[in-house]
């Protein structure tokens, strides 16, 4: 019998499975970093993880709290300056997957991490773009990991911090971008991919125990379900063990000094 697991574990495990052993991955902090390191510790031991602090090939023992924790540098193949990271490695087109989170994500995969409300007089001032605006256009493709609720999954983001497929789904083509943009969205309810023609995000699989109605209610637009809708395979005991062990080590390390 399968072990019980949380919705968040389901999300991270599903995200980890999307990564390949030969990927070179630009890693955002938080859930993306969890998924990338879970992949590294399970089916993708040779994956190259790059954090924007310039640590290339990092193999952290515990999940970093920041993108620049010492463990990343200590375990990296090499550590380069921040200008070099963005100029040679990202803009130079050497990264296959960018893994991002989002405060808001819209039907065309555009990401907002800047403001809720008006830019000049924001209701909520969020941290901003950081590396993400260029990660979104220079990595071969983008995976987004985001908890699924109406506040986050919106029809139209208040602000495009990082380009998905644009306001009408066709912006990347107009801008002549050679990269694919968001090809995969993993939430705690389902997995989504852009429609091959319109680039609108559609549900391709639903996590075990989640209903179509629940996904519909949690999504800020009239969401489409693919006709061949699948059930996402649940986490295996081995995946859960590695993830929980990693998170326990991390918790002990970050609170330990306190």
């Amino acid at each position: 019998m399968a072990e019980p697991y949380t919705a968040s574990e389901m999300m991270v495990v599903t995200a980890a499975r999307a990564l390949r052993n030969d990927d070179v991955c630009f890693v955002g902090i938080g859930a993306p970093s969890e998924a990338c390191n879970l992949a590294r510790l399970t089916h993708a031991p040779d994956i190259t993880l790059i954090y924007e602090s310039g640590t290339i090939g990092a193999k952290p023992e515990v999940l970093p709290l920041s993108i620049g924790d010492g463990d990343l540098c200590r375990t990296a193949l090499t550590t380069v300056s921040v200008p070099e990271t963005f100029q040679y490695w990202l803009q130079g087109g050497r990264i296959s997957v960018g893994f991002l989170g989002a405060a808001q994500l819209d039907r065309f995969g555009n990401i907002n991490t800047t403001v809720i409300g008006d830019y000049a007089r924001p209701k909520v001032r969020l941290p901003g773009g950081g590396g993400a605006p260029e990660i979104a256009t220079f990595c071969g493709e983008i995976y987004v990991i985001v908890p699924h609720d109406r506040r986050r999954m919106v029809d139209r983001v208040d602000f495009i911090t990082s380009l998905g497929h644009g306001r009408d789904g066709q912006e990347r083509h107009r801008l002549g971008l050679q990269t694919k943009g968001p090809t995969l969205v993993i939430t705690d309810l389902c997995v989504m991919r852009p429609n091959p023609t319109t680039n609108e995000l559609e549900v391709v699989s639903i996590h075990p125990g989640v209903t179509v109605d629940r996904v519909r209610e949690a999504t800020g637009w009239e969401v489409t379900f693919r006709p061949d809708l699948d059930t996402t395979p649940p986490p295996t005991t081995a995946e859960l063990e590695v993830l929980r062990d990693l998170k326990a080590r991390t918790e002990a390390a970050h609170r330990g000094g306190g």
Partner: peptide, 25 residues
């Protein structure tokens, strides 16, 4: 910003790079 610091260190008036595609900023 990384490019802008590098331009400052290089004595250039501005930094040229590929960025901000499709963003509202």
């Amino acid at each position: 910003m990384a490019a802008a610091y590098a331009a400052g260190a290089s004595g250039l008036p501005c930094a040229v790079f590929r960025g901000y595609a499709g963003t509202d900023l």
